[in-house]
Amino acid sequence: MKKINLKVNGVDYSVEIEEDVRLLDVLRNQLRLTGTKEGCGEGECGACTIIMDGVTVNSCMVMAFQAEGKEIITIEGMATKSGLHPIQRAFLEEGAVQCGFCIPGMVLSAKALLDKNLTPNREEIREAISGNLCRCTGYNKIVDAIDKASKYMGKEGDVNGI
């Protein structure tokens, strides 16, 4: 057993972990943040995407102890009390969600992109989500949604609660 300190969605946690668990396991099983999904478990699908210190990582490929002192955003950290994050709103409006399994990861990849580049073109959007596999949507409506979200965020700013 080992103790790690990390900040998730603005909240400080101190968690007892087994040395060999992944960050994904800590998020889902210990912090009960089950919005982060496990698809392949080997870094190929992006379903487990989270943002760690500003960059997206596959949380299935990060050992929990590597998250010591890090600041993490998961899908649960996107909406605020006043409502959905503009990215989430745009996903809903554009019909960008089908089964939904890839969507938490997609939304976080979109956030990481838009935090750096608020006016991406469609190619840049595609590039940014190319590590997130989706079996249902054919990606186009997701690209539409991220494009729309970029406009919302340009106007409203990033209303993320963190």
Partner: peptide, 17 residues
Amino acid sequence: NRFTNYLIPTALDVPDL
């Protein structure tokens, strides 16, 4: 039996339709 050898399209492979 894994995404490393069972490839499915990514956002970069699909054109706007």
